[in-house]
């Protein structure tokens, strides 16, 4: 499993993703600078890390999507390569049109950094196959613009196609208004594209993948990807490849 981590100007979780992939999972990983195009064939996973690409100027992710590297990401997505966007990476995926919907400022207009509980919406994806559907996991969030919005039809479609990967929930897995940290529609914390090869999520699995940090719930997400790519996952192959 070879990963590319795209470095945009202002990315600041690129090093964290690199650390988890290379040190915790022991898999090869490379940084790809936003000015470079790359060949999708060289990588199995492409990570769009968190941070403040272009300082969040204009709108989070709005400028980064025009990077040369994003052209390669779009092509890779089309070819069925796995693409993981975390936090600002999720925002860029939305701006690039690889996932439906948009991000608004958090409901209370404040930056939120704390742990949240997430209910796993689907285990039927390359990113979540080691979780159980409905399992409750804990992950940190750290964002100012994580208030996910999509129109009702889109939300209905995401639900009916089983594309909501994570919901903000309470400790018991109840998806309640109180457990929603930012006002996201339907408590959505992460979604998949139609082909299930692109995942965007606001919480940070890379920040909770080691016991020393007090929580390793996020490690399963990266291990799911490895299981999938090595053909061991229960979900088999998705879409075209």
């Amino acid at each position: 499993m070879k990963s590319a981590i795209i470095v945009f100007p202002g990315s600041n979780c690129d090093g964290d993703c690199f650390h988890v992939l290379s040190e915790v999972l022991g898999q090869p990983a490379e940084y790809v600078f936003h000015k470079e195009k790359f060949s999708a064939g060289d990588f199995d996973l492409i990570v769009l890390p968190g941070g403040f690409s272009y300082g969040d100027y204009l709108r989070a992710g709005a400028i980064a999507r025009f990077s040369p590297a994003m052209e390669s990401v779009l092509k890779a997505a089309e070819r069925g390569k796995l693409i993981l966007g975390i936090c600002n990476g999720f925002q860029i995926l939305l701006e690039a049109g690889l996932l439906p919907g948009a991000m608004m400022k958090n409901r209370d207009l404040k930056f939120h950094c704390h742990d949240v509980y997430l209910k796993v919406g689907t285990a039927d994806s390359p990113f979540t196959n080691l979780y159980l559907p409905g399992e409750v996991v804990k992950m940190p969030v750290a964002h100012g613009q994580g208030n996910y919005y999509a129109d009702e039809d889109t939300i209905e479609r995401l639900k009916s196609e089983n594309r909501i990967a994570f919901y903000y929930s309470d400790e018991k897995g109840r998806v309640t208004e109180k457990a929603n940290p930012n006002g996201s529609a339907a408590n959505i914390a992460g979604i998949l594209n139609e082909g299930r090869n692109v995942l965007g999520m606001m919480p940070h699995p890379e920040r909770c993948a080691e016991e020393i940090l007090g929580n390793a719930d996020g490690k399963k997400l990266f291990k799911s990807i490895l299981e999938y790519l090595e053909g061991r996952s229960k979900i088999g192959k998705i879409g075209r490849s």
């Binding site: 090093g15 964290d16 404040k110 950094c113 080691e210």
Partner: peptide
């Protein structure tokens, strides 16, 4: 206050704000 500050980025924060002192691992 501190929930408005990103205190988990860099994945070194072993003891978070709200304690006597913060503890960071040295990778």
């Amino acid at each position: 206050i501190y929930q408005q500050y990103d205190h988990t980025v860099r994945t070194d924060t072993v003891v978070r704000p709200g304690s006597d002192a913060a503890v960071l691992r040295v990778k």
